[in-house]
Nucleic acid binder design. Structure first.
Length: 480
RNA sequence: GGCGACGUGGCCGAGUGGUUAGGCAGCGGUCUGCAAAACCGCGUAUCCCGGUUCAAUUCCGGGCGUCGCCUCCA
């Protein structure tokens, strides 16, 4: 039984799908006006992992993640660059998708764009006006929060509280300060869509109401996004959808914590952010993904390049083990004193699932992974006969597949990993290894050590094993 | 101002009313020409003050500190 923390009830609950073993989930995507940063990466990786875990548990998952492709910031950027808003949104959708691919985030089943659902949004506005939940003033349509009794149920706030803290907002036409726009009249030279209220464009929240209702139906199981979306975005989405359709929007609301830099929230407006591209220029995306999973998704995650180095080593450790298995020479003699690998394998599966069942506790799941690596190394330290080794490999690669499928890491071949970090041409390296081994043979250890040290400075470590000299590599982070 | 979260060993990071993850770094050892890798061993933490309890890091109250939301934001 999967338990998850539901923002709506502020408690950890058993997950019960609405229908059999189906999970329908909608996750808020990004507004496409710039490159994605690490905060976007965290949300993407968190929900991707949740999705992957449901799939692993044999649920049939329908996963929707949208793009907000029309919005003030997109228009502003388009004006700055002297291009159309479509060119901006297209470009950054494309860049977003590249980033997601590099992070090994599975493509959503649906990746709708707001502008593809204008009719549906207009329809919701019409219904809300008809039902007297919304009103039109001079081409703008606003939602009247006072009329929706449950307003505040997600963010656990009351209108008075919200008003008390509200920064002075000079809005004009609204009947009540906290009312929000469903439809915005467009100014001259702004992108515009035809509507019963004249030319305009949708407000921010309405798109998700339209797309989720159309693509998943109401209610659906899980709605997710970053914690910063709880208010007002998701609160408003609930108000619109539930007022218009008289059905609950989603049963479970999941929100991931922020990525911090020096304890402060990473955000565009504060300027303290790293883009995904900047980071994966310095570290493998796999390292970034592992790092993002290394703390619980509800908690803040402090980002630093130094922290990434730690996880770079973790990834390396795994590939070292794979490499070891590839090279392993089973003993021709019958195994002695061998422990059963079966129990290591079964223990891992149990720990791993227990962790993820409990509100997707990826740090604990990772500790099970690290234990597995250690236990496996220990197992291989014994003398293993061929039959035992073959049986072991089968169990081991089953577990690796689970880790890959669920956590989305460790999907490379070890040689790929080590080669991608190689700082000199491989044939040159082979020459040096050859040269060093000649020196070793001649007991010229000074020369041998000199070669090894020189390579080490370039991020290449040599390991003399009984089946030959192996190399491993790690990136040199000059700028850190 | 209102509401909320958090404070764990050198660092990162979980769980738990009593036997107390995991990782990184460090130290000692096995191995090695020497290393590296791997393995073994060591370190033994829960902001402060009260309270409840046979027992609290875990529950309650207070304090201090950090952060978040109330504005676009993953």
């Amino acid at each position: 039984m999967i338990k998850l923390f539901n923002t709506l009830t502020n408690t950890k609950e058993d997950f019960k799908p609405l229908k059999n073993n189906e999970v329908k989930m909608y996750v808020c995507g990004v507004t496409v006006y710039d490159y994605c940063h690490i905060g976007h990466a965290r949300a993407a990786v968190v929900f991707d992992t949740i999705r992957r875990y449901f799939i692993y548990k044999n649920y049939n998952v329908t996963f929707v993640k949208n793009f907000t492709d029309i919005d003030d910031k997109i228009i502003k950027k388009a004006n700055q660059e002297g291009v159309t808003w479509q060119e901006i949104s297209k470009k950054y959708i494309n860049e977003h998708n590249k980033d997601m691919t590099s992070l090994n985030v599975l493509a959503p089943d649906f990746a709708p764009k707001a502008t593809e659902f204008i009719d549906e949004m207009i329809n919701i506005c019409k219904i809300l006006i008809e039902k007297d939940y919304a009103y039109e003033i001079d081409g703008d349509v606003f939602f009247s929060v006072k009329k929706f009794n449950d307003y505040g149920k997600l963010s656990h706030r009351h209108l008075e509280e919200l008003l008390a803290g509200a920064r002075v907002e000079i809005n004009e036409k609204k009947e009540y300060e906290l009312d929000f726009a469903l439809w915005k009249k467009s100014k001259a030279n702004e992108p515009a869509f035809d509507s019963p209220w004249g030319l305009g464009r949708p407000g921010w929240h309405i798109e998700c109401s339209a797309m989720s209702a159309k693509l998943l139906g109401l209610p659906f199981d899980i709605h997710g996004g970053g914690k910063d979306l709880i208010f007002p975005h998701h609160e408003n989405e609930i108000a619109q959808t539930e007022a218009a359709f008289e059905k609950p929007l989603a049963n479970y609301w999941i929100h991931n914590g922020f990525v911090n830099i020096d304890k402060e929230k990473m955000s565009k407006s504060s300027g303290n952010f790293y883009t995904i591209k900047e980071v994966i220029n310095e570290f493998s995306p796999e390292v970034l993904r592992l790092f993002l999973l290394s703390s619980h998704y509800l908690n803040p995650l402090d980002f630093s390049l130094e922290n990434l180095m730690e996880f770079e080593k973790s990834v390396e450790k795994f590939y070292l083990l794979l490499d070891r298995i590839n090279d392993y020479k089973a003993s021709t003699k019958k195994s002695t004193d061998k422990t059963e690998y079966k129990s290591i394998y079964e223990n891992f599966i149990a720990e791993f699932e227990k962790a993820l069942d409990d509100n997707f506790n990826t740090p604990v799941a990772l500790s099970a992974v690290f234990e597995l690596i250690k236990e496996t190394n220990k197992f291989l330290d014994q003398k293993i006969d061929n039959n035992t080794f073959i049986a072991f490999k089968s169990d081991f690669f089953n577990t690796v597949k689970i880790i890959r499928d669920v956590l989305g890491i460790y999907y490379k071949k070890p040689e790929e990993w080590f080669k991608e970090n190689l700082s000199i041409p491989e044939d040159k390296l082979m020459e040096l290894i050859e040269k060093r081994n000649m020196a070793r043979k001649n007991k010229n250890f000074a020369e041998a050590d000199e070669i090894r040290l020189a390579l080490l400075k370039q991020g290449i470590e040599l390991h003399d094993t009984f089946y030959g000299t192996k190399y491993t590599t790690h990136r040199i982070h000059k700028n850190l």
